[in-house]
Design a protein around this nucleic acid. Structure first.
Lengths: 239, 239
DNA sequence: TCTTTAATTTGATTTTGGTCAAGGCAATAT
DNA sequence: ATATTGCCTTGACCAAAATCAAATTAAAGA
């Protein structure tokens, strides 16, 4: 059984430079956790002893004030790893994690990863790269909040879901529900709904539930990227 | 002359784990650049071949759209290093740099740093730590933009300038001009001015030019941190 | 299918911050 | 000292988004 997990791990980008021995150790200590929608995996108050791999569904990472207002840090799906930065922050995290929908994660002891990092510079470099990419995305996000209005942020979000080489009509399926997309983009659900309507007025775009049909990528690009420092197609696309 | 620079570098946190040989090499290839206020050091369009150390004044890192709207990424003063992340991004940066006031920087070839990183895991770990800290700050910044209003953001900014253990009356000097503080906080100068006035109404606070006198840190904390996920004193304070 | 619940939309209203224009103030240069 | 320039503030107005309330639609269970 532990062997199945090992094979699984080898195919995950995050683990590709891990030594076999460490993969074994991680597999042995792995736990599988099933999560109902909305159930919390950990809180920023907790001491971090494990890190996580998403295997099914979506996990929301967020910060929360005393009175319940949330700021979304990231939203991750299968094959993404999170919670590992605790290694560089005295075993604390600055965010909480919960299932955005029914989901499954695998958890591993941080201490195993810590040991591996100390003498595997390839893994360290991988983490460095992914951290750099994340930092860049955060910079981009701050720029978006500063310079783009709600409709443009939605447009930008949509563009990142598209295979950017495609031409002609395109159908996009929102990866998770609209309320969560709104939160991810830093706006209220009501604002999201209205801003999407405005987008419909501006460019040729049809919405049916979570599916969005776009007739001209160019128009959308022109609209969304005009208030952006980077040119389309964006260089900081995920994964 | 190169020796003076070497000694200087050894005292900079960023270089503390660099080998002597690399410090020598960096010193030999170092260039000193004086910058008038507003003059640009590099643009995100440029290919990055060097990284930088601030030696005097303030440097503004920012992103800019075609029509000149800016989003501030960071504002750095003496002893801070920037531009080194280009190493992990194919020798590109996603931001531009200019002097926020008369300033001086030292520049070094990235390739020397690259070589050093490849076989100095201590340095790599340092960079990892500083990158983690920066990422955390960015998360905090996104939270601030999402959950705090203009006055609370200003309050938060002020709190981070204070020695948090002090009690009683406190005088804070803004590190750079108000227009730049406003940009750093993602608001217009007019909004900054008004929001600072509002802050005066809410808590006991006096402003004379760049100097701000605060009578009760507690009041300010209560006001600014109520819309925040982390408790005061903040854990992600700079440097 | 019928309930029940949750997600989404819409309308009305308020709040916040942005924009534009004008003045005041302060630092620097002449 | 006076002029010039750039920074900062204020007022009037506008626009975007948040909030509150209600209706509608979609999804999940029984």
């Amino acid at each position: 059984m532990s062997i199945i997990k090992s094979n699984t791990l080898k195919n995950i980008p995050f683990f590709k430079n891990c030594s076999d021995k460490t993969i074994e150790a991680l597999s042995d200590q792995a736990q599988i956790i099933d999560l109902e929608k909305g159930s919390m995996l950990f809180s920023n108050k907790d001491k971090a002893e494990r890190f996580y791999l998403v295997t099914k569904g979506w996990i929301k990472l967020y910060r929360e004030t005393i009175d319940g207002a949330q700021s979304v840090v990231d939203i991750l799906n299968a094959n993404n790893v999170f919670g590992e930065v605790a290694l560089f922050q005295n075993d604390t995290t600055s965010f909480s994690a919960e299932a955005a929908e029914r989901a499954q994660v695998m958890s591993f002891p941080l201490c195993i990863l810590k040991k591996e990092i100390e003498n595997n510079s390839n893994l360290t470099m991988d983490m460095m790269l992914s951290m750099t990419r994340h930092a860049r995305q955060q910079d981009q996000e701050i720029e978006n909040r500063t310079l783009k209005n709600a409709s443009q942020r939605i447009g930008c979000f949509l563009l990142r879901l598209v295979d950017q080489r495609k031409t002609g009509e395109i159908v996009i399926k929102l990866p998770y529900d609209k309320t969560l997309v709104a939160a991810r983009l830093g706006m209220q659900p009501e604002t999201f709904s209205r801003a999407l309507n405005k987008l419909k007025d501006q460019i040729d775009l049809h919405v049916v539930g979570r599916e969005i049909r776009i007739l001209s990528l160019q128009d959308l690009t022109k609209y969304a990227c005009s208030a952006c420092s980077s040119e389309f197609p964006c260089h900081d696309i995920k994964s």
